[in-house]
């Protein structure tokens, strides 16, 4: 059940002097069960891209499909009323299948209790009470929230806990794709590793596809299987972290960087150390150094 973007473009304020192209002819496929990282500096078009996946922004050109079904085109000859209904139904199904967690998602909490807030999504889907209750319990466990927090007000929780509640609220829709926009912004290292570790485990256990937008090259190198680098509304790189981070020069020009260990690897290679692969983590570097020095 992939999400496919075919020659998608998006222009803000088309026709006005303030018009700005946010995406330019992007073709891309997000497959099931993948853990994808999206990198790009602020204004590169990556937020437009992820909002499109969830049906919040409609492409000005091109097509976007979920499981082969277009987000916005419908068979011709439909009556206006019929069409409107079909559009609403499709959007609802897209939002159920592609969950989107915005930056600082804890700022969207509003219910009296944690359980009610998490239930908001499934309730909008019109699920029966028992199913909703079961999902609340399940999703709280998924993000590592203790069951006794259920009846607490979300506003009494710590920053990290609030964020987990917000993520659980999206997971409760049982999406096939989970899109997260910088889920660790503003958290301390322990909170950051806690959330990303949870998400990685979730992805491995439940096979949900995760699309992670991050500014941290260390994090995308550590957690993702594929990296998409966006710059000036275009996809500049798309591949395995090891492949993408080979382009250190270009990434730097895009205002991005590479993980510190990758950088160290390149510098050591320049000095003549026989390291073959691109190195991503401290572990890999240790392994490589062991190989070099024990032979």
């Amino acid at each position: 059940m992939p999400i496919e973007l075919k020659h998608v473009s998006y222009t803000y304020d088309p026709g006005l002097p303030t018009a700005k192209d946010a995406l330019k002819d992007v073709s891309l496929t997000f497959r099931e069960k993948e853990f994808v990282g999206i990198i790009g500096h602020t204004g590169s078009g990556k937020s437009t891209l992820i909002q499109m996946l969830n049906g919040l922004i409609q492409p000005t050109e091109g097509e976007i499909l979920l499981n082969g079904e277009s987000y916005y085109s419908f068979p011709e000859g439909m009556k206006k009323r019929q069409l409107k209904k079909a559009q609403a139904a499709r959007l609802k199904s897209i939002r159920q299948q592609v969950g989107l967690v915005f930056q600082y998602p804890e700022h969207q909490l509003f219910e009296m209790t944690v359980a009610k807030d998490i239930a908001f999504g499934p309730a909008n889907l019109g699920l029966p009470e028992e199913e909703i209750a079961a999902r609340v319990d399940e999703c709280m466990a998924m993000v590592g929230l203790k069951p006794e927090l259920k009846e607490k007000s979300p506003f009494e929780l710590s920053g990290g806990q609030k964020r987990r509640v917000a993520i659980a609220g999206v997971l409760a829709m049982k999406p096939a794709f989970l899109v997260l926009d910088e889920p660790t912004a503003g958290l301390d290292p322990r909170g950051r590793d806690g959330i990303l570790g949870r998400i990685r485990r979730l992805q491995e256990e439940t096979q949900i596809a995760v699309i992670l937008v991050s500014h941290s090259m260390e994090d995308v190198a550590r957690y993702t299987d594929r990296i998409i680098a966006v710059d000036d509304g275009r996809i500049r790189f798309d591949g395995k972290p090891r492949e993408v981070f080979e382009h250190a020069q270009e990434l730097r020009q895009m205002g991005l960087g590479i993980p510190q260990m990758t950088e160290l690897g390149f510098r050591l290679k320049e000095k003549g150390l026989p390291l073959h692969d691109t190195i991503l983590s401290v572990e890999e570097m240790l392994q490589a150094l062991k190989e070099v020095y024990s032979c």
């Binding site: 919040l56 939002r95 969950g99 889907l125």
Partner: peptide, 15 residues
């Protein structure tokens, strides 16, 4: 932003 975030959770402001 908040409207978008709640729409992403299936909130409906238009009907």
């Amino acid at each position: 932003k908040i409207m978008k975030a709640q729409s992403a959770r299936g909130a409906d402001f238009e009907s």
